[in-house]
Design a protein around this nucleic acid. Structure first.
Ligand SMILES: [Mn+2]
Ligand SMILES: [Mn+2]
Ligand SMILES: [Zn+2]
Ligand SMILES: [Zn+2]
Lengths: 125, 125
DNA sequence: GTGAGAATGAGAGGCAATCTCAATCTTCTT
DNA sequence: AAGAAGATTGAGATTGCCTCTCATTCTCAC
């Protein structure tokens, strides 16, 4: 169930460890935005426990491999989610922290405007 | 020069201390986005030295009074600038950290769209 | 000038994230 | 299938930004 065969090719040369399988499983089954501490908490409930270092380290690896996207939402921590094909952005409630996915054609127009006016290639936010 | 008479009314009941005059002076003369540590460093060069606690505390006060705006740019720290009349946004270079002010009518259209589609009143970013 | 109440400094504390390094695991080579 | 090279892991130390605590000092209305 969790032993994903595709994972081997997705990891592009990086060793496929039990921890990495567990972490990707947890992120894929989160079905929303999840932070490192919560991943650590959920990982601790599984048969293989996991350290916080490993969570942080592998989130960086997944990010680099293009499997996961890091979202710098709210004030303090980063949230993570499986990388989606159509790019999207986020609304964060200042009161309760609720995160809502957001899409609009205006975003692309805005990014084009930034590119033309300032030469910036927009990658975040 | 630094002893600003308007400041008394701007502070709306909060005591006008030498530290607050110095901090507002430093922010106003920075002419760009400045962080707490840099304010502390520049404050230490003046006749009155200043503690990091006082920098952070007063930035919160200035923010609350509407004199200064807090910008959560980059990864780690907040930057501060004098509150501008026409709202603006920012571009941050991922390589060197350079911050560029940015304005566009598309921003307002986007904020309106968010308001209508999701009921969010956009306040940041 | 006095006094009530607010601001300050120095250091402790909080929290997310990174780093260190010895022990363990993966994978490649025989 | 065993061995070896190289990558990963855990635990705890460390960093960086920021807030909190509280005894002392300052501000301002009277
Ligand atoms: Mn999302
Ligand atoms: Mn600005
Ligand atoms: Zn909410
Ligand atoms: Zn740059």
């Amino acid at each position: 169930m969790r032993g994903n065969l595709n994972l081997l090719s997705e990891m592009k040369g990086h060793p496929v460890t039990a921890h990495r399988q567990l972490l990707l499983h947890l992120i894929r089954n989160a079905h929303d935005h999840i932070d490192a501490k919560e991943l650590y908490r959920r990982g601790a409930n599984e048969e293989e426990s996991i350290s916080l270092s490993t969570v942080y380290r592998n989130l960086q690896v997944f990010k680099k491999l293009g499997l996961v996207e890091e979202r710098r939402l709210g004030q303090m921590r980063c949230y993570y989610e499986i990388k989606q094909k159509p790019e999207h952005h986020h609304l964060v409630c200042q009161r309760c922290g609720k995160i809502v996915d957001f899409e609009s054609p205006l975003i692309r127009k805005l990014m084009d405007e930034v590119q033309h006016q300032h030469g910036f290639n927009v990658t975040k936010k």
